[in-house]
Simulated assay, not measured.
Amino acid sequence: MRYLMLVLSTPDAPQDPEGVPAIEDWVRDTYGAGRAVLGDRLRPPADAVGVQVRAGEVIVTDGPFSETKEVVAGFDVLDAPDLDEAIRIAAAHPMAHTGAIELRPFWPLGLEGDADGGPGDA
Rank of each mutant, 00 (worst) to 15 (best):
74 G>E: 08
64 P>E: 13
94 P>E: 03
80 A>E: 07
75 F>T: 07
78 L>G: 09
94 P>V: 08
117 G>D: 00
116 D>F: 15
106 F>Q: 04
89 I>E: 05
62 D>T: 05
58 V>M: 08
116 D>M: 11
92 A>W: 08
118 G>T: 00
96 A>H: 11
62 D>S: 10
76 D>R: 02
65 F>A: 13
63 G>M: 05
57 E>M: 08
74 G>H: 10
116 D>N: 14
62 D>H: 08
108 P>L: 01
118 G>W: 00
94 P>K: 11
115 A>P: 01
64 P>I: 01
63 G>D: 08
76 D>Y: 13
102 E>I: 04
60 V>A: 06
113 G>D: 06
74 G>L: 11
58 V>D: 01
94 P>M: 11
118 G>V: 00
64 P>W: 13
71 V>W: 09
66 S>I: 13
109 L>R: 00
102 E>A: 14
95 M>W: 15
65 F>L: 14
106 F>A: 14
102 E>G: 05
96 A>C: 07
67 E>A: 11
61 T>P: 06
63 G>P: 04
105 P>W: 02
60 V>H: 07
96 A>R: 01
87 I>E: 10
86 A>E: 04
65 F>V: 12
85 E>H: 13
86 A>M: 05
66 S>H: 11
76 D>A: 15
85 E>L: 06
108 P>E: 15
106 F>T: 08
66 S>R: 10
65 F>I: 09
91 A>L: 10
108 P>V: 00
110 G>W: 00
69 K>W: 10
90 A>W: 03
111 L>V: 11
86 A>Q: 05
100 A>G: 11
117 G>S: 06
57 E>P: 02
94 P>D: 03
65 F>P: 01
79 D>R: 14
111 L>C: 06
54 R>T: 12
68 T>V: 10
97 H>N: 12
61 T>I: 02
75 F>H: 14
85 E>K: 10
81 P>A: 09
110 G>H: 00
59 I>D: 05
58 V>A: 13
72 V>Y: 04
106 F>L: 12
100 A>D: 13
89 I>H: 06
83 L>D: 07
60 V>E: 10
116 D>I: 08
93 H>Q: 07
56 G>A: 08
59 I>H: 13
77 V>I: 15
95 M>E: 13
87 I>H: 05
95 M>V: 09
98 T>A: 05
97 H>T: 01
58 V>S: 10
89 I>N: 06
116 D>R: 14
107 W>L: 14
70 E>Q: 15
64 P>Q: 12
66 S>P: 00
103 L>F: 06
98 T>S: 14
55 A>M: 03
64 P>S: 14
97 H>Q: 09
54 R>L: 12
100 A>C: 02
103 L>S: 04
103 L>G: 03
82 D>P: 03
111 L>R: 09
108 P>F: 01
62 D>V: 01
55 A>V: 01
89 I>W: 07
109 L>K: 00
56 G>L: 08
109 L>N: 01
99 G>Q: 02
91 A>F: 03
106 F>S: 11
83 L>G: 04
116 D>S: 13
95 M>H: 15
113 G>Y: 02
56 G>S: 07
87 I>W: 06
115 A>Q: 13
118 G>P: 01
69 K>F: 10
68 T>L: 11
100 A>P: 01
102 E>S: 12
64 P>Y: 13
59 I>K: 08
87 I>S: 02
57 E>N: 12
113 G>R: 00
118 G>C: 04
114 D>N: 14
102 E>F: 09
107 W>A: 15
104 R>E: 02
108 P>Q: 12
91 A>Y: 07
77 V>S: 06
